[in-house]
Design a protein around this nucleic acid. Structure first.
Lengths: 347, 347
DNA sequence: GTTAGCACTCGAATAATGTGAGTGCTAAAT
DNA sequence: ATTTAGCACTCACATTATTCGAGTGCTAAC
């Protein structure tokens, strides 16, 4: 167990290092107001803290640097809560001031706010379409053999897919088909669309229309080709400003990592309500082992929807980032919730 | 005027440097098969070429490096045409093999192909919507006071805007309104939509529906808020692989440049049919003065639509890049053209 | 006009040297 | 028994020398 003095010293060291990015020496600590011991004492404590694995030296006669274990301990026990300065709070207010009606815009805005306020890189995972429901389906033919299907959800999200139809379809038949589909599918959660389409609707369609048979297949294929997850990245270059990224190879490997959208999506997605902090090696992916990732989730109604993440050096302003992430995930959740409510009332 | 020998030597030097990124010495040149003079002769010629401004030394006893004037001359007079290797040609074929029905996909695919095949960074400017015509307009209400308007063009491009309507609108009225709008606006070039909406349609709407007055205003506002130009960037990180980018500050300034989408759009847009090469300082923008930009345009029908650009070091494989850009811009133009044709026939 | 030869230049790599922040340890002070 | 002052020691980092070699320019011979 650590003594109070050790806790204090560890905290001060980490705070200092997070600020300065420089190894912290005993003398520097002893000069801080919070600390009233001589540098020699600090040195002794530091040696102990190092032995316990919370600190490291960069070389035999250097100051100390937090180890990952140190950061972990800091995040779990030491960190003091962070008060966002007023101007940053109002910055957030502003960003959400205009009516944000589209899912995309809310998410993009949030990503921007996050990266602007932290100088790290933010990544937001678009929603799994769990809870969103189909509001309306439209099929618009572009030419004899091409058409575009448009899905609108209750969240204002619009998706479209183009597809070809080898057989010609009468506008009349198309209309009939769309009507049937809408009648049956409105309000159905997007995630169940596919099943419902296959089981209930297919036969129904066959009954009512002549040629829709084949058209239906193509529609189905177009609508349910699997969709890549959407990633909204903000402040991609911020991380370049961090002094730990002096090294081009690191930058390269990080960036090519970020472009592996699927990997990232997989890595980030998390389903707890809480904020999760992954420090350095705690991340499996190699290119990220110098980085920390903090993730939070936002939700719509009861269902969790997506993930917000912030990517920074292990020397991250954990305290600030966490409160910011909390704030923003709440804000997003609230915004979406309000739509959802609205919608349930409206129907 | 340059002698034939000087031309040859200049060409060989630039070819070599484009390959190696290393200053080229006289001995290296004299050893090439194409050249049958001693290194001393080459040295003399080099000295002359330097005096004429086509070559530079990096320091007083270094090999020669092409100057920007040198590259310019090379591009204008020296470059030998490039034959794409078979495998690259088939790579392109492949990329366009699947039916590409959506504008976005074609453009994205092209950007990818370009950056993959060159290892530079490609930027494609989305189309000005000059020639595309409205295929269909839909308005779908999400709740009492929010709705989403969807525009589909004959090119399969889908756009949507959400907006709020302070007054409640009867579904019936909405439908009527949409019908009127479609009747009047289908086939109208997107670029004229706004005018037409204001002049002809507004009064018509007022006649036919009660409350649409206000709704109309909001619709108008939503539809014609000015749209940022879309930029499709491929291979953002490729440029990091170039040896000339050893320096973090350069990378930073370049990347923050690329994020200034509007600037870029302005910089790149060009309206000639030809391919344009801007070498180094020929670009106004500071962060780009170590780079060359090559732009080509693609078009739909007669009207020029957008710009494809490739961003690389001044030491660029001009020859290859130019033939690739030609190929791709043709391919894009052809693809779009086929839709356009298709559509005209279909109506 | 072309080329061989040679002295010279200068960047880049390597080694030598100094500087200072920071440590660990010992012994004195509290 | 802690705490602290003091001191020798370590090691990254910066600065300066030293060497090395690719490449040049020039001169003189071919």
């Amino acid at each position: 167990m650590l003594t109070d003095r050790q806790l204090l010293i560890l905290q001060v060291i980490i705070d200092d290092f997070i600020q300065s990015a420089q190894p912290v020496g005993s003398r520097a600590i002893s000069k801080k107001d919070e600390v009233s011991f001589s540098s020699a004492t600090i040195r002794n404590e530091m040696a102990d803290l190092e032995e316990l694995g919370f600190l490291e030296k960069t070389h035999s006669s250097s100051g100390r640097v937090p180890s990952e274990k140190g950061y972990r301990f800091y995040v779990d026990h030491l960190m003091s809560p962070f008060d966002l300065p007023k101007n940053e709070k109002s910055f957030i207010q502003q960003a959400f001031a205009n009516q944000l009606l589209e899912f995309e815009k809310v998410v993009q805005q949030s990503a921007r706010v996050l990266s602007d306020l932290t100088n790290y890189t933010s990544i937001i995972l678009g929603p799994e379409v769990y809870e969103t429901k189909l509001k309306q389906l439209q099929i618009i033919s572009l030419s004899d053999h091409t058409a575009v299907a448009i899905l609108v959800t209750n969240t204002g999200h619009v998706e479209h897919r183009s597809f070809t139809i080898p057989v010609r379809i009468e506008p009349h038949d198309l209309e009939k088909m769309v009507n049937i589909l809408n009648e049956r599918l409105q309000g159905v959660p997007i995630i169940h669309l596919n099943r419902k389409l296959r089981t209930e609707i297919a036969s129904l369609l066959r009954k009512h229309t002549d040629e829709s048979d084949k058209a239906y297949e193509y529609l189905q294929a177009a609508l349910f080709e699997e969709q890549p997850v959407k990633l909204y990245v903000g402040g991609k270059t911020n991380i370049l400003m961090q002094p730990e990224f002096k090294d081009i190879d690191k930058i390269r490997s990080l960036y090519s990592m970020i472009e592996e959208e699927n990997e990232i999506a997989h890595l980030l997605r998390h389903d707890s309500q809480d904020i999760k902090v992954s420090i350095g090696q705690e991340n499996e992916i190699e290119a990220m082992q110098d980085l920390s990732i903090i993730t939070a989730s936002y939700s719509l109604g009861d269902e969790q929807m997506g993930t917000i993440a912030l990517l920074g050096p292990t020397r991250m302003e954990y305290s600030k980032v966490i409160s910011l992430l909390n704030l923003l995930s709440n804000r997003m959740t609230k915004t979406f919730h309000s739509w959802y409510q609205d919608d349930s009332d409206g129907e």
